[in-house]
Amino acid sequence: MAPASLEHANITVANLERSTQMLIDLFGWHVRWKGPSKDGGTTAHVGSDDQYIALYSKGSDSTMDNTYETIGGLNHIGVVVEDLDAMEAKVKALGYQTHNHGDYEPGRRFYFDDHDGIEFELVQYD
């Protein structure tokens, strides 16, 4: 029996279109599905044909807690990339600041926070 694989994660964002476009611009992903969702919100599935991030929005900003101190909170989303340096240039060109760069076995990484405070880790394995 093959091991299970992660299909998606579902996160809440303030502006569905802005978050969708950021994921498309950075990672070359596409919208797999978009439509009405619970409590009057809208959801967009953005990713590859096999894996995606479900973005949920009710179309309003809200206060955010520190997820590293919240049981069950989202700490960051990790994305494997082929060329970390090129991706860092794209992240910066979109206006985001990178931080927490590190080299470790077996690869390199950096982080950035998006407009909703969602932290992304980009990693390149050697």
Rank of each mutant, 00 (worst) to 15 (best):
P3F: 04
A4Q: 11
S5A: 04
S5M: 06
L6Q: 08
E7V: 13
H8V: 01
N10S: 04
I11G: 07
T12N: 12
T12Y: 11
T12G: 10
V13L: 11
V13A: 07
V13T: 11
V13K: 11
A14R: 06
N15R: 13
N15L: 07
E17A: 14
S19K: 00
S19A: 03
S19G: 07
M22F: 14
M22E: 02
M22P: 10
L23V: 11
I24T: 00
D25T: 10
D25A: 06
D25G: 07
G28L: 10
W29A: 03
H30E: 13
H30M: 13
V31K: 00
R32P: 07
K34V: 14
G35L: 13
P36A: 13
P36R: 14
D39S: 12
G40M: 11
G41H: 06
T43M: 05
T43K: 04
T43P: 06
D49E: 15
D50G: 10
D50P: 06
D50E: 15
Q51A: 07
Y52N: 12
I53Q: 07
A54V: 02
L55H: 10
Y56I: 01
S57C: 14
S57L: 10
G59K: 15
D61N: 12
D61C: 10
D61H: 15
T63G: 13
T63K: 15
T63I: 14
M64H: 15
D65K: 10
D65Y: 11
N66L: 06
T67R: 04
Y68P: 04
Y68T: 04
Y68F: 07
E69L: 14
T70M: 08
I71H: 08
I71Y: 12
G72Q: 10
G73Y: 01
L74T: 01
N75W: 04
N75Y: 06
H76W: 08
I77G: 05
V79M: 01
V81A: 03
V81R: 06
V81W: 01
D83S: 08
D83C: 05
D83L: 03
L84M: 02
M87H: 07
M87L: 08
M87Q: 04
E88P: 01
E88L: 07
A93G: 08
A93T: 09
Y96W: 04
Y96P: 08
Q97W: 00
T98C: 03
T98P: 01
H101K: 14
G102W: 12
D103H: 05
D103W: 02
Y104R: 09
Y104M: 13
Y104K: 09
E105K: 11
P106K: 02
R108H: 12
R108W: 01
R108N: 05
R109M: 03
Y111H: 15
H115T: 11
H115C: 05
I118Q: 06
E119A: 01
F120L: 05
F120N: 01
F120T: 02
L122S: 00
L122R: 00
V123K: 13
Q124T: 00
Y125C: 02
D126T: 11
